[in-house]
């Protein structure tokens, strides 16, 4: 006897349930839908007489959604209401939260690892060279305030140009589906985070530049400190603005090649 499998309509119904329980992104829904479908099919192998709704009723209870609050399955399947009644979060909420947390942690780890590479061979040669060049610029310049303002301006101009001109043109993922992906939303957010980081960086450079008059730091110490700070912040801006979206794009293409237009 053939084992009973879920039909496409039933699978669609499972996606609708996820959607109605605040799990809006397809990359998070896939796992939940497959898991629920596996449980239902396992139930059918023992109790083949169960209808889809009956099997789903049992699974949703297991997932922390209490179907008894609803008079009919119809309202249960489409309403997010049960999760408001139950005190503890449903499995839907737990999985959604953990997935969001995972993305932030994953890319923060990748970013830290890549930033660290700039302080190891061979990239450290580039880092030291930039620090040295900036240090020389500060030394040669008669007025450090001018160099600081130029650096501050460069950070802002480059980041604005990057966010509005370069990013939309070179860092885009074209999809062949209308599904929403959490990974894509995270990818898009890097475009805006680069702006806030650049504003923060330029202000920090300006503040440290003002230290000479405020704290009376020695000239050589200040020049070196500014050169190191500007280099480090430049590396951070590059890693978040260029390296991270590239990595996210690669990860997305590896995970979901069927949804990418090449």
């Amino acid at each position: 006897m053939n084992e009973r499998k879920l039909t496409e309509e039933e699978i669609d119904q499972l996606f609708a349930i996820c959607e109605n329980h605040e799990v809006k992104y397809f990359d998070v829904q896939i796992e939940l839908v497959d898991h629920i479908a596996c449980i239902i099919e396992a139930k059918w192998s023992i109790e083949p007489q169960l209808s889809f709704d009956e099997a789903l009723f049992i699974v949703l209870k297991q997932f922390g959604v209490d179907p008894l609050f609803h008079a009919s399955y119809g309202s249960l399947l489409t309403s997010p209401f049960p999760k408001l009644i139950l005190n503890k979060p449903s499995v839907f909420e737990e999985i959604k939260k953990s997935k969001e947390k995972e993305l932030i942690q994953k890319y923060a780890r990748i970013q830290r690892k890549y930033i660290a590479e700039f302080f190891k061979l061979p990239k450290i040669i580039l880092t030291i060279s930039i620090v040295f060049i900036l240090f020389l610029v500060y030394k040669i310049a008669e007025d450090n305030q001018v160099v600081t303002l130029v650096l501050q301006g460069s950070f802002l101009v480059v980041s604005v140009a990057f966010s509005w001109l370069i990013f939309p043109k070179f860092f885009k993922i074209e999809l062949s589906t209308s599904h929403k992906f959490l990974l894509i939303e995270y990818f898009k957010s890097t475009r805006y985070s680069i702006l806030s980081i650049a504003v923060f960086s330029s202000n920090l450079i300006y503040l440290v530049g003002r230290l000479r008059s405020l704290a009376g730091l020695s000239l050589i110490g200040l020049e070196l400190l500014l050169a190191i700070l500007a280099t480090f912040l430049g590396i951070v801006v590059y890693v978040i603005g260029v390296y991270t979206p590239k990595r996210i794009k690669e990860d997305f293409e590896n995970k979901f090649p069927q949804f990418c237009i090449h």
Partner: peptide
């Protein structure tokens, strides 16, 4: 699932998706 997601974030696991029958 939260543990699988955590292990993935920590670089302990990798993920690939595949079409199995009518679902991913």
């Amino acid at each position: 699932y939260p543990m699988l997601h955590k292990l993935e974030a920590d670089g302990m696991l990798t993920v690939e998706t595949e079409m199995i029958g009518n679902r991913m």
